[in-house]
């Protein structure tokens, strides 16, 4: 057990120094075409419920990953932007510290983890998330027979009244690490792919270990285009974005 002194010293930023893995995701906004394949991929992988027309009207859709669409300019100089938005896995996550029951915390690999069966549903985390990427189970999610046959056995189905959110496909990370361990090696770059990164047709999403300086994500995160959303809030997200090009290259 650590001494009190040691334990006081532990700070969030040490993830990158003290752990083999620090997972990160880079999304190239210049590549995203808003096709929504990642949305369905995430839904299939993580047993994300559909809520139906009525609830969607109340903005209660559960997609862990959503594609935000922004429109700029006036006709005919209109520009549409897509912004895939999922849990940003902030190193200084606003959502974590406000949870009264430790239902969400930061794991040693830099992931913001939601523990469903601890959650009592105060929704404080949802209020404190500047990205609004935490979703609440307003009702019991409906997977009636025979639709339940599709459910991924690796991921639990959430009860009503708990928060859920993107886990960066925690189960895939674990499987990747298990496989690597079985084969007696470190996880290689590209071994682990969350469902969205796996499926993105344009290759806009890249996932990897940012502690590995040879990894793609490390290089991308250190390119000039890399930004964090709401950087001014100081959340230090593990999900980073690569800026798009200029609006009108021709003009």
């Amino acid at each position: 057990m650590r001494t009190l002194k040691e334990s006081i010293k532990v700070k969030s930023f040490n993830y990158k120094k003290h752990n083999d893995y620090s997972w990160s995701m880079i999304i190239d906004l210049d590549r995203c075409n808003g096709c929504g394949a990642c949305v369905i991929g995430c839904q299939a992988e993580n047993n994300v419920a559909t809520v139906g027309e009525e609830e969607v009207g109340k903005k209660r859709n559960m997609h862990w990953l959503r594609i935000e669409r922004y429109i700029e300019g006036e006709y005919p100089h209109v520009k549409v932007r897509f912004l895939p938005m999922m849990c940003q896995h902030c190193a200084q996550a606003p959502c974590e510290s406000v949870c009264p029951v430790y239902a969400t915390y930061h794991n040693p690999e830099g992931l913001n983890v939601q523990v469903y069966n601890r959650c009592i549903g105060t929704r404080f985390c949802g209020n404190n998330c500047p990205y609004s990427v935490r979703y609440f189970n307003w009702f019991d999610s409906s997977f009636p027979e025979p639709v339940n046959n599709q459910l991924n056995p690796d991921v639990s189905v959430r009860e009503r009244g708990v928060m859920e959110k993107c886990s960066l496909c925690m189960q895939r990370i674990r499987r990747g690490k298990d496989t690597a361990k079985d084969e007696g090696r470190e996880v290689q770059d590209g071994d682990i792919q969350p469902a969205c990164a796996q499926t993105c047709p344009t290759g806009a999403i890249t996932f990897g270990n940012i502690n590995d300086h040879e990894s793609k994500v490390y290089k991308m995160a250190h390119s000039g285009r890399a930004i964090s959303l709401f950087e001014e809030k100081g959340t230090h997200p593990a999900v980073k974005y690569l800026k798009g090009g200029t609006n009108d290259v021709i003009g």
Partner: peptide, 15 residues
């Protein structure tokens, strides 16, 4: 609690 649980939340130190 902070000392024993050693859970990092919000990038804050356990204590």
């Amino acid at each position: 609690t902070g000392y024993i649980m050693n859970l990092i939340v919000g990038g804050k130190s356990p204590f």
